[in-house]
Design a protein around this nucleic acid. Structure first.
Length: 499
RNA sequence: GGGCCGUUAGCUCAGCUUGGUCAGAGCACCGGACUUUUAAUCCGGGUGUCUAGGGUUCGAAUCCCUAACGGCCCA
């Protein structure tokens, strides 16, 4: 860090030296601790209740980071915080004698262990009357300001630990909830008979999604490998292998830009269920998301920005073409049938005020959806029956070969989930991959799918009819915690290196 | 990739419009007082490469250009 020679830093170094001079180990290996701060507070309350009066309760040994120091001459108060609570402790010259002088070499930010009875001050504050104290770790840098916290977004993300310390009340609960949400997803899936599995992160072919991969190199094998852009094709191999229900919650890597909804690595839940179709998966998603909301937030009604939405099933279902027509006025039928060209679609969309770029047809459809429809999808909604061109891994809809059995779930104008009745016809799958390869050659587009021969081989052995699902966990956490940028639900969002 | 905005003390921020007591405040920190405070209080102290590099000017935190990083909007 740049502030070498800062006085704040050297003054703490001097304190450290003085402590060492007193024979104090500023970084001792062990802590004597009988209670967390929350337990110590509860202990006093319980004993007071039993006695029916204020009293001095049992002796406790607690530990935590000093968050405030209020020196009053021969009497000093400090607030110490551990992961459970903040607790006031009181040092007095009478009780501590010579050790009281050590206090002047302690700072806000140091970790301290204290021992003494629980009691209340005159003002009623629950407090440890310190009989003994031990420095547990000396802090050499000043903490951010106590009242305003750490506001600088860049520093909050680059030094998340400071964000957690300084903005504890706002930031810590988001990540506690994130953890709870993921825990509940696991128990939800497990209770429905799904098996959690792990598939490779480093893969020879980055397939299974329309995305550009990160490339790396394995020296020993002497070959390039890719970071996975989806877990889809490996999980389907497991369905081929005979697992009926599998899921993976894993990190996915896509080499694309960063914004409020995108980070190059993110967490994706994918699940595959044999003998199910996309209707079954819609029920699964409705039930999962509403259950999560109820269990984690205590309500299926969720506040996001200025709106409150209701996540309880059933969610509205709108066919893709209908949604496009309703919100843009464009009739997709002639384009799906090949009577009109992609260029004509771009032109028509532009006439209606949607600024589409020329490109492969799947991109044009996708862009039209996100410009015309997505902003209107506030209440939870399934958009169903997508154009086949957008969905190389999904099975065609009976009776309309231009569409596939696919849905995406949206809420608060954000895409949450993507699911299909999976394509299990190996020959059809091969020709879909070939179509993707053609698009890539034609447009030089990195964001098309790639042919995975090994996956095609697996399909040739036979995959049962299967319903598959992908849910972006980060966005789900955003929805359920009210955060409007993905960076606020990831502990360490991607940042450009400082040169 | 394009547009707009931001970057000043450890932290939170003024100051920039109109160049010249403009190096400022609060918290933190340092010295002193204080035995029930809790954003403790009181007295004293500013601890700084104004993001970086150029330019204009007698003079730049301030105006101009370039770059870095961040944010928002667009693609």
């Amino acid at each position: 860090m740049p502030d070498q020679g800062s006085d704040l830093h050297t003054s703490r170094q001097q304190k450290l030296q003085r402590l060492l001079g007193r024979g104090i180990n500023p970084y001792p290996p062990r802590v004597h601790r009988t209670h967390t701060n929350a337990e110590a507070r509860a202990l006093l309350l319980k004993q007071e209740q039993a006695e029916g009066t204020r009293m001095k309760a049992d002796i406790v040994a607690v530990a935590g980071r000093i968050m405030a120091l209020r020196g009053m001459g021969k009497n000093t108060f400090a607030d110490i915080r551990d992961g459970t609570d903040k607790l006031q402790v009181q040092f007095s010259l009478d009780l501590l004698g010579d050790d009281y002088a050590i206090l002047k070499d302690l700072d806000i930010g140091d970790f301290l262990g204290v021992q003494g009875p629980m009691m209340r001050t005159r003002r009623g504050e629950v407090t440890v009357e310190v009989h003994q104290f031990t420095l547990l770790s000396k802090s050499l840098r000043p903490l951010p300001e106590k009242w305003h916290g750490l506001r600088d977004t860049e520093q909050r993300y680059r030094q998340r630990y400071l964000d957690l310390i300084a903005n504890n009340d706002e930031v810590m609960p988001i990540f506690v909830n994130r953890s709870r949400i993921i825990e509940r997803i696991r128990s939800f899936m497990n209770s429905r008979g799904y098996l959690e599995v792990d598939t490779p992160v480093l893969v020879p072919v980055a397939a299974g999604a329309l995305a550009r991969p990160f490339v790396t190199h394995h020296h020993s094998l002497g070959q390039d490998l890719y970071m996975r852009i989806a877990t889809e094709l490996y999980l389907k191999r497991l369905i081929v292998g005979g697992f009926d229900k599998v899921y993976e919650i894993g990190r996915i890597f896509r080499n694309e830009g960063l914004d409020q909804n995108h980070n190059p690595e993110f967490t994706l839940l994918e699940s595959y269920e044999a003998y199910a179709d996309y209707n079954d998966i819609m029920s699964l998603v409705e039930e999962m998301v509403s259950t999560l909301a109820r269990d984690v937030l205590g309500s299926v009604r969720v506040q996001y920005r200025e709106v409150t939405i209701d996540l309880s099933p059933p969610w509205r279902r709108v066919p893709f073409c209908e949604a496009i027509h309703q919100h843009s006025g464009i009739d997709l039928e002639p384009f799906l049938q090949g009577d009109k060209s992609t260029a004509e679609l771009v032109a028509e969309a532009r006439e209606r005020g949607f600024d589409l770029a020329e490109g492969p047809v799947h991109r044009v459809y996708d862009k039209l959806l996100s410009l015309a429809v997505e902003p209107h999808l506030i209440e939870p909604t399934f958009i169903i029956d997508y154009p086949m061109a957008m969905s190389p891994l999904a099975k065609q809809k009976p009776g309309n070969s231009a569409l596939v059995e696919r849905f995406e779930a949206f809420a608060v104008a954000m895409e949450l989930a993507n699911a299909y009745t999976e394509l299990n016809d190996p020959q059809e799958q091969r020709s879909r991959f070939q179509a993707q390869e053609k698009v890539r050659q034609q447009y030089g587009d990195e964001e098309t799918d790639r042919t995975d021969e090994d996956f095609l081989l697996a399909l040739e052995y036979g995959m049962p009819p299967t319903g598959g699902l992908g849910i972006g966990i980060d966005r789900l956490v955003m929805l359920l915690t009210g955060q409007t940028t993905i960076r606020d639900v990831m502990l360490f969002p991607q940042m450009r290196s400082k040169s």
